[in-house]
Structure formats: structure tokens, C-alpha cells
Design a binder for these strands. Structure first.
Length: 273
DNA sequence: CGCCAGGACGCCC
DNA sequence: GGGCGTCATGGC
């Protein structure tokens, strides 16, 4: 990644990033595509820092109204710019299916998101579809002036007072997650550092957090790249392309590989329709 | 109308 | 431990 300051903006050069592929691939739900004269433009946030970012062309971007300090302290980490995805994809390409997935959408990166926001978001995601997940999270943030509520704020709610979300049976799970994080019985910072099996078990003590959601929180919210969420789409990939199991030599980065596969199989299925 | 969605829970055996 | 019905909501 290379960048330069241009007025109030930062111009970024990174061949291994595509905004559509990274911000709209089901790992984060709060980025919104807005009309612009650029290839594409997204508005979103990490914690309390909002961002408008545009793709100018393949591999070049503009971080609007972003000063260099904020870019360095916040967005380099969030977009995982310190990781060399070309090198990652070279390793992935030793596998035939993964090689196809990487050439299909090579601009996917694993975002380093906030663990609390991921916990809530992926509890909402269970047995749900992506457009509706986004809608529920929109209504949640609208209720807090456009910001994602912290655990203190959400712990004051109950399943009843959360009915405006129209999140269905998941509302009681959200209330339990907020209560456990707020009272310290679920310490997300501590869980993030645990051996992965212990971390899974701790997360699953929260109601509504099973194997899949725990894995998503570990991968997307704690940058545990060995976490490997298996949803209905990845089940199809495993059954069709990896009947003998997922390659072991990829295990420490399996979660990142999973992102390419998830996007790939969903796109193929759409084409068939 | 029925089927599905980045599943988990409760109950059964 | 595995199998199965149920759980809200909305898009298709």
C-alpha cells in the first residue's frame, strides 16, 4: 500500500483492494454505497470514526476528508493494509478452487472490525439474509443518532424495547449479549487473546451464539484468521470441492480463504438463476 | 402460496 | 452425541 496526502484527502494505492468486493461481501453490514462520479463510493464507520471512501480506478482510492494521523491510526489497520494479500493469494492459488475464487474477486480483504459490533451483527445474522441484516442494523444505529450503540447503552434494553428493530426471535439474544458484555461476564478483549477453543467456548455462553456466530466474531471482530465460519454456502463449497476436507496447510489463514470462497460460490449460484 | 436466509435452542431418543 | 421442529421477518 502506498498513499499521499492531497488537500483534505488521502489518495491510496493498493492493487489488492476492491471496495465493492470488500465492503459488500457479507463481512460488514454498515457500509452504504452512495451515488458519486467515481467508480463507487461508500459511507461507513469504524467505532466513532466515520469515513467516505471512493474507488477511482482499479487499485486507487480516495479517503475523503481524512487527515494523515487518522489514516495511520485508524484506517491502515481497519483495511488490513499492513498485510500483503498478493503473497496470501499466491499461497491460496496452489489450491485449484481457491485459485479460481481469487482470480474471480481478488480485491477482497479481511476488515479488522470491532468485536462488540461484530458480536451483535452476527447474532442478528442467524437464519437471516444480508439485506434484512443491514436493515435491522440500520434501525439500531438510527436509534442512536447514526452510531452503533455501545454495550452500556444496549444493556439498558430488553427484548420488548428492541421490538422496533423487527429482529424477531433474535431480540432476546441481543439483550443477553449486551448484559453479559456490560457486566463483564463476557470480556471480549480477553476472549480475543485466548486459545481459539477456549475463545469459542466463552463466546458460546452468550445466548444466540452457536458455532457459526462464534466463528464469525473470531474472524471478523478479532482477526483470528484461523477461524472458519461454515454457513449454508460454505457447506456447499466443502461438499462440492473439498470432500476430503479443507487443506491443512491453509489452516492458519483459513478464514481469509473462506472469504474468497464465500463470494465465489454465491456469485456462481446467482449466475445460474 | 411456499421457500429461503452468513443458525441456535430445546427436546427427544 | 446426533436428529428434528421451532423460532420472526421479509424478499423472491
Amino acid at each position: 500500500m502506498d498513499y499521499r496526502v492531497q488537500g483534505n484527502d488521502i489518495i491510496v494505492f493498493e492493487p489488492d483492494l476492491d471496495l465493492d468486493e470488500t465492503l459488500d461481501c457479507g463481512q460488514a453490514f454498515r457500509w452504504k454505497k452512495i451515488p458519486s462520479d467515481y467508480e463507487c463510493t461508500y459511507e461507513g464507520a469504524f467505532l466513532n470514526d466515520k469515513l467516505t471512501v471512493s474507488q477511482l480506478s482499479k487499485g486507487s482510492f480516495i479517503f475523503h476528508n481524512t487527515d494523515e494521523n487518522a489514516f495511520i491510526s485508524r484506517w491502515i489497520s481497519y483495511f488490513d493494509f499492513e498485510t500483503d494479500y498478493s503473497e496470501l493469494k499466491r499461497a491460496f492459488s496452489e489450491d485449484e478452487t481457491l485459485s479460481k475464487a481469487c482470480s474471480f474477486a481478488g480485491g477482497i480483504r479481511l476488515l479488522r472490525q470491532d468485536s462488540w459490533e461484530c458480536l451483535i451483527s452476527f447474532i442478528i445474522s442467524q437464519n437471516n439474509n444480508i439485506p434484512r441484516i443491514k436493515g435491522i442494523i440500520d434501525r439500531l444505529c438510527d436509534n442512536y443518532h447514526g452510531r452503533f450503540p455501545d454495550h452500556e447503552q444496549l444493556s439498558r434494553e430488553t427484548a420488548d424495547t428492541l421490538s422496533y428493530l423487527r429482529s424477531g426471535f433474535r431480540a432476546k439474544y441481543l439483550a443477553d449479549a449486551a448484559a453479559k458484555v456490560a457486566d463483564g461476564s463476557a470480556d471480549l478483549a480477553k476472549i480475543a487473546e485466548m486459545p481459539i477453543e477456549n475463545a469459542r467456548n466463552e463466546l458460546k455462553k452468550i445466548k444466540g451464539v452457536g458455532p457459526k456466530v462464534a466463528e464469525c466474531v473470531l474472524l471478523f471482530g478479532m482477526y483470528r484468521t484461523e477461524a472458519f465460519p461454515v454457513d449454508v454456502w460454505i457447506k456447499r463449497v466443502l461438499a462440492e470441492y473439498y470432500p476430503g476436507g479443507f487443506p491443512g496447510y491453509l489452516s492458519d489463514k483459513a478464514g481469509i480463504a473462506q472469504q474468497y470462497l464465500f463470494h465465489y460460490i454465491r456469485s456462481i449460484s446467482k449466475d445460474k438463476e
